[in-house]
């Protein structure tokens, strides 16, 4: 399989994630879609890494995994904090901030 296939797959996953963020309202699901987008980016980097025979990409992806994990932790922390205070967990309903 040539590298092009992997890149198209990454593009598809990236697009699905982006679409999901726009369409879904539940913050937990939105965070999941963010993870989709980040792993799509990781796939793209690994494809190029294989194409170039260069190991830098693999270290990059390892760092991306760490970053994704940290983002999830903080995001879910915010969700839990909001849930505790009975704030509706619906991003379309976050009207407190509409100017």
């Amino acid at each position: 399989m040539s590298i092009e296939w992997y890149l198209v797959l990454a593009a598809l996953l990236f697009a699905i994630g982006a679409g999901g963020i726009l369409v879904r309202r539940n913050p937990v699901v939105i965070l999941l879609c963010l993870e989709l987008m980040l792993s799509a980016g990781a796939l793209a980097i690994l494809s190029f890494s294989r194409m170039l025979g260069d190991g830098d990409g693999q270290v990059f992806v390892l760092i991306v995994l760490v970053v994704a994990a940290c983002e999830v932790v903080v995001g879910l922390g915010l969700v839990v904090a909001m849930f505790r205070r009975r704030i509706p967990l619906d991003v379309d309903e976050t009207t407190e901030l509409r100017g």
Binding site: E4, L7, V8, A11, L12, F14, A15, I16, A18, G19, G20, L22, V23
Partner: peptide, 20 residues
């Protein structure tokens, strides 16, 4: 968003695939 979301996603996918 129901219409806009999938359109944006499709556009992204098509654009990147063409670039590739």
């Amino acid at each position: 968003l129901r219409i806009f979301g999938p359109i944006v996603a499709a556009a992204l996918f098509i654009e990147i695939s063409i670039a590739v």
